[in-house]
Simulated assay, not measured.
Amino acid sequence: MRTLTLSIASRDEVSRRALAAFEGTDQGSYVSFASVDLLWKVMSPKRWDLLKTMAGQEAMTIREAARRSSRDVKAVHGDVHALLDAGILERGADGRVSFPYDAIHVDFTLTQAA
């Protein structure tokens, strides 16, 4: 099963993972955000639903993603582009989009405000 991990990470943490990957240590698939607020801004409830619809499926057109999620094409178009910009979705040479994972793991810790 291919899993994408969404995390909150500093630039240093992202750099550490990248260096370890260059040295041959498998790091898994990550998309990291600078803050929890940014994660929630990108990952709206409708976008979570869209990812659930697309998980484990073949690449599809935006129109097909809208049909499968029972949503308006224009709204799905906006969500797809936000997820492409964040590096969560991929676009093929044929223009179709995919979420090439079977699962999402969200990894962050909330702490008391200073």
Rank of each mutant, 00 (worst) to 15 (best):
D79P: 01
V31P: 04
I8M: 06
S70A: 11
W40G: 00
S69I: 10
L110W: 01
R63M: 01
S35H: 10
F99S: 02
T111S: 02
I62R: 02
T111N: 03
D107A: 13
M1N: 13
A113I: 14
E23G: 10
S35L: 10
T111W: 13
M54W: 03
G24Y: 14
A113F: 15
F99G: 01
D49P: 04
L6I: 06
T3K: 09
Q27S: 01
V73A: 02
K41L: 12
D107G: 05
A93P: 08
P45T: 05
P45M: 07
A113Y: 12
G78L: 14
T5E: 02
L4K: 09
A65D: 00
H105M: 08
R91Y: 10
Q27K: 04
Q112V: 13
S69G: 07
V36L: 08
A65E: 00
G28S: 10
D12L: 14
A82L: 12
D37N: 09
L89A: 08
K46P: 11
L6K: 09
E90H: 07
L84S: 05
M1R: 13
A9W: 00
A65H: 00
R71N: 05
F108G: 07
E13A: 15
D72F: 09
T3F: 07
Q112E: 06
D85H: 11
G87I: 14
Y101M: 08
T25L: 13
D37V: 14
A113P: 10
R67F: 02
G24C: 06
A65C: 00
Q27I: 13
R71K: 07
T53A: 03
A114F: 15
E13C: 06
L50H: 05
L84Y: 05
D37T: 15
E13G: 15
L39F: 09
R11T: 15
H77V: 08
T5A: 03
T61G: 01
L110S: 08
L89V: 08
M60N: 02
A86N: 03
E64P: 02
V36T: 11
P45D: 02
Y30E: 03
F108S: 04
S15E: 14
T53H: 01
G56Y: 00
R17M: 14
A103T: 05
R2M: 03
G92S: 10
R16I: 13
V80Q: 00
G28H: 12
G28W: 13
A82C: 13
K52G: 09
F33E: 06
E13T: 15
M1I: 10
E58R: 04
A103R: 11
G92P: 02
D107K: 15
D37H: 12
I88Q: 06
V14W: 06
L4A: 08
E58L: 07
L39Y: 03
A75V: 14
V14E: 12
G24F: 12
T109R: 11
R67Q: 05
L89C: 11
D102M: 06
